[in-house]
């Protein structure tokens, strides 16, 4: 009785898993399919299957340039936001002050602020300062939006961090620098890895802020958006697939490196 119930439940559960996976991967699969056509209109099934779009994407300077711009922004965002967020998260874990809880909520507010409005506001601000927008200003704008999120991600890993560990290490004869290297950094490391991943992905895929703040430079999502809207060709899905593969590779690499950071000695 219970045995048959259990097996029925198992079948249902695997079916549910299958549905979820399908929902997640069908859009990606359809993008891959679209990139294999040679027509200017999205239509299926294809009359002619072709890899021309990939050849074109890999052959043109634009593709490399788009990726380079997005990558530069994302890397800058990762480095700066992780540094700022680490100190912010440590301050949270280490000091208890009036309004600490309130600040924890306030720090997240910019996340709920509509991104295009944030982008426009930052553009006006930059213009007022006389700064010509390019990929660097876009990186700055991303940082404004990403830092609170990364701070939250790193803080979560530090909620159970006993700050007395640092005092204990100091009391056991460690110098301030040794305390940081032996105690603080290992405690922060898992949060830093997760935070860096978040920062990278949020910056890499961001459109609303980049549109306003990247100036003459074009990021990958910007180019994809404008070419899908106005001048579509299979080149667009082909570039998207290359971009997806590239970012997936980076995420997988980071995940593979994670144990190296977290289980040191």
């Amino acid at each position: 009785m219970t045995g048959s119930n259990n097996s029925a439940l198992r079948v249902l559960r695997s079916m549910w898993l299958l549905v979820v996976l399908l929902l997640l991967y069908v859009p990606i699969a359809s993008v891959v399919l679209a990139s294999l056509a040679n027509t200017r209109y999205m239509r299926f099934p294809h009359r002619v299957w072709s890899l021309d779009a990939y050849a074109q994407a890999l052959g043109t300077y634009t593709t490399a340039n788009l990726h380079l711009t997005s990558l530069s922004i994302a890397v800058a965002v990762v480095i700066v936001s992780v540094i700022i967020a680490s100190f912010g998260a440590l301050a949270f874990a280490r000091y208890d002050w009036a309004g600490r809880k309130l600040f924890r909520r306030l720090v997240l507010l910019p996340v709920f602020f509509p991104q295009p409005v944030l982008g426009l506001a930052l553009l006006l601000y930059l213009t007022a300062l006389g700064i010509v927008p390019d990929w660097k200003t876009a990186a700055f704008a991303h940082i404004v939006w990403v830092v609170p999120i990364v701070t939250l991600v790193i803080s979560i890993r530090l909620y159970h961090y006993d700050v007395a560990q640092e005092e204990a290490a100091f009391d056991l004869g460690a110098t301030r620098l040794q305390v940081f290297r032996e105690i603080t950094l290992p405690a922060l490391a898992p949060g830093i890895v997760s935070g860096a991943l978040f920062a990278f992905l949020l910056s890499w895929s961001n459109l609303p802020i980049s549109v306003f703040t990247s100036g003459a430079d074009t990021t990958l999502p910007e180019w994809l958006y404008s070419r899908t809207a106005t001048n579509y060709s299979p080149l667009v899905p082909a570039v998207a697939v290359i971009g997806t593969a590239a970012s997936a590779a980076i995420v997988l690499l980071a995940a593979a490196l994670r144990p190296v950071f977290t289980r040191k000695r």
Binding site: D162, A168, D171, E182, P186
Partner: peptide, 13 residues
């Protein structure tokens, strides 16, 4: 001198 803390402050990692 050395202190044993209330939380023990063991290095958890």
């Amino acid at each position: 001198t050395c202190m044993v803390f209330q939380s023990l402050a063991l290095f958890t990692h």
